[in-house]
Design a protein around this nucleic acid. Sequence first.
DNA 1: TTGAAAGCGCTACCAA
DNA 2: TTGGTAGCGCTTTCAA
Lengths: 335, 335
Amino acid sequence: MATIKDVAKLAGVSVSTVSRVLNASGYVDKTTEERVMAAIKQLHYKPSQIARGLVSKKTKTFGLILPDITNPFFPELARGVEDEAQRHGYNIMLCNSDWDIEKEKMYLSLLQAKCVDGIILVGSRLREEYLAKLLGTLKVPMVLLDRSSGMGIHSISANNNLGGYLATKHLVDQGYRTIAHISGPQQSPSGQQRLAGYKNALAEGNIPYDEVLVTEGDYRISGGAAAMRRLLRLSSPPDAVFCANDLMAIGALEVLQETGVKVPDEIALVGYDGIHLSKYVFPKLTTIIQPTYHMGTQAVQIIIDNLVAGQTECKHIELDPILEIRDSSIRRKPA
Amino acid sequence: MATIKDVAKLAGVSVSTVSRVLNASGYVDKTTEERVMAAIKQLHYKPSQIARGLVSKKTKTFGLILPDITNPFFPELARGVEDEAQRHGYNIMLCNSDWDIEKEKMYLSLLQAKCVDGIILVGSRLREEYLAKLLGTLKVPMVLLDRSSGMGIHSISANNNLGGYLATKHLVDQGYRTIAHISGPQQSPSGQQRLAGYKNALAEGNIPYDEVLVTEGDYRISGGAAAMRRLLRLSSPPDAVFCANDLMAIGALEVLQETGVKVPDEIALVGYDGIHLSKYVFPKLTTIIQPTYHMGTQAVQIIIDNLVAGQTECKHIELDPILEIRDSSIRRKPA
DNA sequence: TTGAAAGCGCTACCAA
DNA sequence: TTGGTAGCGCTTTCAA
């Protein structure tokens, strides 16, 4: 790999001059510039971003830590992040944490050592105090994605409470009365909030909350399937199920299909996330659509803003999800 | 951020000594070491990987260029790459090329400037000569993924010809005779090869090849849908369709459903890739399963081998896909 | 066992 | 308009 020295030598100028034409910092004679350019071209020279980074303290890359890129909720998010970053001249370092706190910590530390200019942390399970303390030592902006923050950390989240409410309310409106919930992991904020929304809608519909109808899942297909089996074993099974994400709804759907239970005639189903897949299962899954891509771009926006404006006040953006009614929850009887 | 100097000062030693304990290069007094360690801890010191990189010419990161992470075929691949990289202490820089040659070139150049230690290029549409030339200037290993290479570039691909053959043969065996093909883009090698496999199977089954039955798609749901509509407009529509990927098959499936054509009774369908989604559409899609995750890990393996062993001979791994028979292509009549 | 100093490739400042 | 030089944070000789 050619260095700036090689270019300088070939062009017969000093490295300073080469640096100047590289950075278009003016004060370079046109003839000289041309000679330098020619040398650059001839040597296929590309300035080392890492040497530059050492000087400028900037690497033009962001770290993106997310649970698992193979989980269909995240690619869209990652794409939003990448696109927006790309637009501003940044690259993305992708890290899969598998919802593992230790892995998260490890990556957080690693990204710091690699001097990324900002960190986007998706769906973290780390304690807020830990993150706040971390942010103290961290010299780069960090934003929490798909998770809200009470403390001074930027965060972008969807209104999970509203989403849970909309999903359940929809089922109530459709005339269902024994509405079960396959919840997300209750140590995850989103899981808690969606459950809370579920309770709100029930209360509003004057339907008593029945603990037996709530069973915890793990946001995965297999967990949804297992949970559905548990619900079917109930002495009086539900006539509708709100699943805390689409993946679990799909698992539930499979079990229902295997068991010969008709959806939505015997049991209605509502999912959450609006992953691509949800539109193509049978029957098409009613779901709560999250502005996933948008969340990704917004996260980068915040970081960029911080980078240019210095430490700005802490932003906490909450986006509203949308109910998308499809076939898996069509009206059972006039509401 | 604390630097090695700060640590040295606090510990009352020279930077060399700190460096020595950092790299466990021996010859450090135990007492000194402890003092240094204490200073490191106290300052939350983490050696700057970028300064290290400047010296060592290594960044411990690989570049991964793929068409589009939101395309369900790629997350699994990316995960394979990340996991294996992670296992060897490397990080991944993720780049979405959108099948755009210019974007690919841009990223290739960028990754070079960022001094990644290796590049994994997925489904590239760049001309082989270009890549070969590039590899000449490049000083880091590169491997082509999901694409084969005739020239001296490492490559990992699935046997697309075999896959196309298996899919079509299966339909022939099931008794279908008017077998259409919604092909991949014909400028893409995989598209060409799957079509070739299709032709082989037809020939073997003594079914004349009919150009009219082959229509080109774009590997996307919408493209599959459009193609299916074209096929339905034929004076004698097919009784089976082999789609060059699952996404197009799903698009076709939708059109079929809307049109009221029964699958597989009136038209059978076979997809390609074995994306997660394919198991959850209705009817469950028969497909050709690719060893996606494995392809990712293998790619990293090759790079690592190259890194440790120096330039090894060029490897070209071809993995065999597997036919997974599901509901969308069950037997129409005894073969 | 330790420290001083050079140098990785680049930018930035000061002189010329 | 140009060149020299210091220095970014680290590793790596070479001496001590």
